Amino acid sequence: MNTHTSTPEHRAPWNKGKLIGQKAPLRISEIWAIRVRLEIYERRRDLALFNLAIDSKLRGCDLVQLRVQDVCHGNHVASRATVMQQKTKHPVQFGLTAGTRKSLVEWISSAGLRQNDYLFPSRIGDSPHISNRQYARIVHQWFEEIGLDPTAYSTHTLRRTKPTLIYRRTKNLRAVQLLLGYTRLESTVRYLGIEVDDALEMAEQTDAESAPSTVHRIRY
């Protein structure tokens, strides 16, 4: 008779030592810190990838699978592009700033890419384009290089950055919903953490300890 009893394997929680929850968007100063560094060191691919990630607001799975023809009309990078999202199966449109178009032109030309080529081909032979994991490693490297804690940020940081800046400037939640390609407004609120941010902002603007220096008494 087999009297051996197996004991359950104790595995460490998947999130042990990791920060979970929404990742903070980049500040404008941090955007420029990364951008300038990539420009100085002439890292054309990374600069094009960073700029496009900020402008497009695409999930990593959609960004890495973009082809040259998705952002180009002939030999020119378009000012607007439309991409079908893998997760939602809904199209989302985004604009490309002059700086992003310039970095894309320089990258496409230097890499000798053609219309049907992936915009960010992999340097690993068995993959036609950079993988989500490769993209995450590249992004974490950017954060480390400017002194940010990579555990506090992720590829979703880049997706959230521009919509967050737009919302803070305009308070137009519907516009942000369209930019992110969400079908429900509630999803946009949860993704940006808007309710929490607004509550904190109001709390910071309200000085509970301040009071009028002079108390006006009612005279009868």
Results as ranks from 00 to 15, higher is better:
residue 81 A to T: 06
residue 112 G to Q: 05
residue 133 R to A: 10
residue 120 F to R: 06
residue 62 D to Q: 02
residue 91 P to A: 06
residue 109 S to I: 01
residue 37 R to F: 09
residue 97 T to N: 09
residue 113 L to Y: 04
residue 49 L to V: 07
residue 37 R to M: 15
residue 97 T to Q: 11
residue 41 Y to F: 13
residue 52 L to D: 00
residue 54 I to L: 15
residue 99 G to R: 13
residue 68 V to L: 02
residue 73 H to M: 10
residue 112 G to I: 01
residue 96 L to H: 00
residue 77 V to S: 02
residue 57 K to S: 14
residue 129 H to Y: 13
residue 60 G to R: 13
residue 63 L to A: 03
residue 128 P to Y: 09
residue 103 S to F: 04
residue 46 D to Q: 09
residue 108 I to W: 00
residue 75 N to K: 13
residue 75 N to L: 08
residue 117 D to F: 04
residue 123 R to A: 12
residue 107 W to Q: 01
residue 125 G to H: 13
residue 59 R to H: 07
residue 79 S to T: 12
residue 100 T to M: 00
residue 102 K to N: 13
residue 108 I to C: 00
residue 105 V to K: 09
residue 85 Q to R: 12
residue 133 R to L: 09
residue 44 R to V: 05
residue 90 H to T: 11
residue 110 S to L: 11
residue 83 V to L: 08
residue 43 R to G: 02
residue 111 A to K: 13
residue 63 L to I: 07
residue 100 T to C: 15
residue 91 P to V: 07
residue 113 L to N: 03
residue 93 Q to Y: 05
residue 95 G to E: 10
residue 89 K to R: 14
residue 51 N to I: 03
residue 82 T to Q: 09
residue 61 C to W: 04
residue 101 R to W: 01
residue 41 Y to L: 14
residue 129 H to M: 07
residue 64 V to I: 15
residue 86 Q to S: 11
residue 43 R to Y: 15
residue 103 S to H: 02
residue 67 R to A: 07
residue 97 T to D: 05
residue 122 S to E: 06
residue 92 V to M: 08
residue 58 L to S: 03
residue 91 P to F: 09
residue 40 I to M: 14
residue 119 L to P: 06
residue 57 K to I: 08
residue 114 R to I: 04
residue 96 L to W: 00
residue 99 G to A: 08
residue 45 R to F: 02
residue 136 A to V: 05
residue 80 R to D: 10
residue 81 A to Q: 00
residue 103 S to A: 15
residue 45 R to P: 02
residue 128 P to W: 08
residue 79 S to Y: 05
residue 109 S to D: 14
residue 107 W to E: 00
residue 102 K to L: 12
residue 96 L to K: 00
residue 105 V to N: 09
residue 84 M to E: 10
residue 94 F to P: 06
residue 121 P to Y: 09
residue 74 G to L: 01
residue 109 S to P: 01
residue 108 I to H: 03
residue 79 S to A: 13
residue 89 K to S: 10
residue 73 H to P: 03
residue 53 A to S: 14
residue 136 A to G: 11
residue 119 L to S: 05
residue 72 C to I: 00
residue 93 Q to H: 08
residue 132 N to H: 12
residue 88 T to E: 06
residue 47 L to N: 03
residue 72 C to E: 05
residue 99 G to N: 14
residue 84 M to H: 10
residue 98 A to L: 11
residue 36 V to W: 11
residue 46 D to Y: 09
residue 121 P to Q: 08
residue 73 H to Q: 11
residue 58 L to H: 05
residue 110 S to T: 11
residue 61 C to G: 09
residue 57 K to N: 13
residue 80 R to P: 00
residue 127 S to C: 12
residue 119 L to D: 00
residue 78 A to S: 12
residue 102 K to D: 13
residue 61 C to S: 15
residue 53 A to N: 04
residue 97 T to R: 12
residue 123 R to I: 08
residue 102 K to R: 15
